[in-house]
Simulated assay, not measured.
Amino acid sequence: MERTETRQKAPIGRPRGFDADVALEHAMRVFWAQGYEGTSLTDLTHAMGITRTSMYAAFGNKENLFRKALERYTEGPASYGARALLEPTARQVAAAFLVGSVRASTRPGCPTGCLGVQGSLAAGDLGSSARDALVTWRNEHTALLRDRFRQAVDQGDLPSGTDPEVLARYLMTVANGIAVQAAGGATRDALQQVADMALRSWPAA
């Protein structure tokens, strides 16, 4: 009679002792408040409640973590941008975009301003990758607005002589300015007045 040996399989991977989603949320808020270069690894691991080894294993290096945090920001606090594009008219798109910018930049319990604007404005060589990622991020959002306004021109919702590129950059510049002003302490009401003024000059079909 053959003897059969029973061997216990070792676990393939050691389970994480933390919630990666919660940790990423905390990392996003640190980058949002302090910017890429202003955030140290100690700041991140302290806020995330994990060790550096765990951070590297779960998210990669600081640059990769920043990119993941930016994705989370896009899907969370900055998701107003994608929703605004679904509005039926170009003016409603612009209104929803600016209102969303005001609210996201002055959100209770969150850092003021916008991660996508202030995250790496003053970055040196060490932060060049993060700065380039944010330039790409802002350009992509401008392009989405441009395409939506081009559609509005084709449909007669905007005057035929309207330049969709310029209009999109105008809207993005106002939104970026709102974020910078919010970071400087401007109130939600004051910034909403700025958004309302920008909409008063909106081109009529």
Rank of each mutant, 00 (worst) to 15 (best):
R188M: 13
R72H: 13
L121P: 07
I12D: 00
A96C: 13
A204Y: 08
R107Q: 15
D157V: 01
A47M: 06
Y36D: 02
A47I: 09
T51V: 04
R91H: 14
D163N: 02
F31G: 07
R72K: 15
G100D: 03
G38W: 03
T173V: 10
L191V: 08
A58I: 09
A133P: 08
V135K: 04
A94I: 02
A152L: 00
L115A: 04
E75I: 11
T4G: 06
V135R: 05
A190T: 14
W32E: 02
C110W: 13
D196T: 12
F18Q: 05
G81K: 15
A20S: 14
R200Q: 14
P15C: 07
M197Q: 14
R91T: 09
T53V: 10
G100L: 11
T45A: 07
A82W: 09
D132T: 09
L41I: 00
Q34I: 02
R7F: 14
P15T: 10
G38Y: 03
E75L: 15
Y36K: 04
Y36F: 15
A104G: 08
R52F: 08
G13L: 14
A33I: 02
R14L: 13
C114R: 03
A27C: 05
D189H: 12
M1F: 09
T112W: 10
L134W: 11
P111S: 06
G60D: 10
R131S: 11
